[in-house]
């Protein structure tokens, strides 16, 4: 799988939010810990719905979480 054309700040945001674990974030999103890890590492492109859910949890605009590198 090719590297995605965008990066994200999910890891930093998790730590800023009471050091939320990948498992805890996954529970909020209905994802496994491994899927959250894959999203964080840029190995898996989440659905638009999940991207919005992440933005909602961290109370940040979508474009502040996912940064286009293309």
């Amino acid at each position: 799988m090719a590297q995605l054309p965008f990066t994200n700040n999910i890891r930093a945001l998790r730590f800023a939010h009471k050091e939320m674990t990948q498992g805890e974030l996954g529970e909020h999103l209905g994802l496994t810990r491994q899927t959250v890890a894959a999203i964080e590492q840029g190995k898996y492109s989440p659905s638009l719905e999940t991207a919005f859910r992440i933005a909602h949890i961290f109370e940040q605009p979508l474009e502040d979480i996912f940064i286009w590198d293309g």
């Binding site: 994802l31 496994t32 810990r33 491994q34 899927t35 894959a38 989440p46 999940t50």
Partner: peptide
């Protein structure tokens, strides 16, 4: 048991 997910998530 926290690792066992009977339902698939979107990546699955």
């Amino acid at each position: 048991r926290s690792e066992v997910h009977f339902t698939e998530d979107e990546r699955d």
